[in-house]
Design a protein around this nucleic acid. Structure first.
Ligand SMILES: [Mn+2]
Ligand SMILES: [Mn+2]
Ligand SMILES: [Zn+2]
Ligand SMILES: [Zn+2]
Lengths: 138, 138
DNA sequence: TTATTAGTTTGTAATCATTACAAGGTAGAA
DNA sequence: TTCTACCTTGTAATGATTACAAACTAATAA
């Protein structure tokens, strides 16, 4: 559970201007495990930060994403999702309930000799199927 | 290089109604290695099939995708791309020129013990970086 | 061949996530 | 406190995709 103070320090260290909105958005994302959409963040924060606009959420998330402080997830539906966990890990999307799970992943295990002449900057791995909870209900 | 006749037989075997539009779209996609967008397919075919509408391209691609005859690729830009190669393989997107390359991939090599209780139906792997052609130009 | 009909194509309008823009507001430095 | 570059906000624009309804046609059977 990251506090506002933790996040303040993180942004200060990176010379990112501290604003109430940025801190609240980053706080929400950091303490979330659901890879929320812009819409979800907006609804979660609008009571606490009534002036908050969706444009600010887009701006903030895109900015933090450029700075590699968060990750933007593209899954097969039509809304971007965001992840404060920037270390390499895989995602599992349940086709039944829509939940997105994290899982550990050894990206070195890929046998990619074909790509020897390519400069690989990012490895995205994403599985689809049915989660244990949904499997037990069928 | 698949002919219209090859594709006709393929659709007949699957009991998919044969239409001129479907055959042309599938022919174009089958002989393409660029993972084209709807827009690209539309521009490539509109001279040969002047009546063709984008809605038909969407309908056709979505239908063939449901039937697992083609694959829909979600990359990090905002347009879906399509692939007639349905076997398991990875994609590499060059951040410089935008090209999408195929590469062989042994999906069994993933160490995914965490997912033992999950039913995995699909494994999507997608790398980003710079391709050899663009690397040599820098 | 012709008639029938369920499925297909097409153009247009609607939807919806995201971005552009400009005006007003504010963090941080001096 | 003042200044200014940067940030936030609401609204409008964009662009990919889908909804819809009318016209059309592939496939089947008489
Ligand atoms: Mn994650
Ligand atoms: Mn491919
Ligand atoms: Zn589930
Ligand atoms: Zn390239």
């Amino acid at each position: 559970m990251k506090t506002l103070e933790d996040l303040s320090n993180e942004l200060k260290r990176k010379n990112i201007r501290l604003t109430h909105q940025r801190l609240k958005i980053l706080e929400y994302l950091s303490n979330s495990k659901t890879h929320p959409t812009v819409e979800e963040i907006y609804h979660a924060l609008k009571n606490e930060v009534p002036s908050l606009s969706k444009t600010t959420i887009y701006n903030t998330l895109n900015y933090l994403s450029e700075l590699k402080l968060i990750k933007t997830l593209i899954v097969d539906d039509n809304e971007a999702r965001f992840d404060a966990v920037t270390g390499s890990h895989g995602h599992f999307k349940c086709d039944e309930c829509g939940k997105i799970y994290d899982f550990d992943l050894n990206t070195e295990a890929f046998d990619t000799e074909y790509l020897d002449d390519f400069k690989v900057n990012e490895k995205i791995v994403y599985f689809k199927g049915i989660c244990p909870g949904c499997l037990s209900k069928i």
